[in-house]
Simulated scan of single mutants.
Amino acid sequence: MPESVPAVEALPLFPLHAVLLPGASLGLRVFEPRYLDLVRDCSRNGHGFGVCMILEGEEVGAVTSAAAFGTEAVIEDFGTGDDGLLTLQVRGRRRFHVHRVRVRDNGLQVAEVSWCAADAVEPLRPEHGLLATLLHEVIDKFGGEHAGAPEARFDDAAWVGWRLAEMLPLQNVQRQALLQTEDPHERLQQVLSLLP
């Protein structure tokens, strides 16, 4: 029986000097015409767009080289900043792998992506129990949107890993490595290795 090939979809990209993680929130300021078009299209069609970490280049201007793994961003809210620019609040949803990128005339990158498997809900292993305690302490100290999370979340290996990757003071390359890790327990092991 031949191995199934993952379905490939077209996804517009918004490369950033940041890593968007599943379940995490991110604020964006949008002013370049290509990204204003992207936001208009996504809003009209009810689709998300891809956020990939920039490996080479800048967020503004010429086309950049971005990481091959990213996260779909869905728009939760929008407004206008004090400077008159469009502001977006997005949330990370599904992880994806980029296979090929083409550049439109307006400079917008559109990737052919396959979606990574969703994280299964699996209990924390005993060796990662300390990480749930650490996450509780971080949330107790800094608050934020996860302050009211149900206690059951703190025994979900994937959720604990993503929240720590989001809230700990990690470098973007470290977050990117966690984003590219498929297994939630392996991801937690990596988080453990990054602690001082």
Rank of each mutant, 00 (worst) to 15 (best):
Asp82Asn: 11
Phe78Leu: 15
His146Cys: 14
Val160Asn: 02
Leu85Glu: 06
Asp140Ser: 08
Gly161Pro: 02
Asn106Lys: 07
Ala117Phe: 15
Asp77Glu: 04
Asp156Pro: 00
Ala149Thr: 11
Gly92Tyr: 01
Val98Lys: 08
Asn106Ser: 08
Asp82Gln: 10
Arg102Asn: 08
Ala118Phe: 13
Cys116Val: 14
Arg125His: 09
Gly92Phe: 03
Leu134Ser: 06
Asp119Asn: 03
Leu88Cys: 09
Thr80Ser: 12
Glu145His: 13
Pro123Cys: 07
Arg93Ile: 13
His136Trp: 05
Glu145Asp: 15
Val103Gln: 00
Arg100Phe: 04
Gly92Gln: 05
Ala165Ile: 08
Ala158Phe: 02
Ala149Ile: 08
Phe96Met: 08
Gly79Ile: 15
Pro126His: 11
Ala157Asn: 05
Gly161Cys: 04
Arg125Ser: 15
Arg94Trp: 12
Gly79His: 01
Arg102Lys: 03
Asp155Ile: 02
Glu151Ser: 14
Val160Arg: 01
Gly148Met: 06
Asp77His: 14
Val160Gln: 04
Asp82Val: 15
Gln89Trp: 15
Val138Leu: 05
Arg163Trp: 03
Cys116Ala: 14
Trp159Asp: 02
Glu151Leu: 14
Val138Cys: 07
Ala149His: 03
Val121Gln: 14
Gly143Ser: 07
Arg93Trp: 12
Ala147Met: 14
Ser114Glu: 08
Leu135Glu: 00
His128Asp: 01
Ser114Trp: 00
Leu85His: 10
His99Arg: 00
Leu85Trp: 11
Leu130Phe: 12
Ala117Asp: 10
Ala158Pro: 00
Leu85Met: 15
Leu86Ile: 02
Trp115Lys: 05
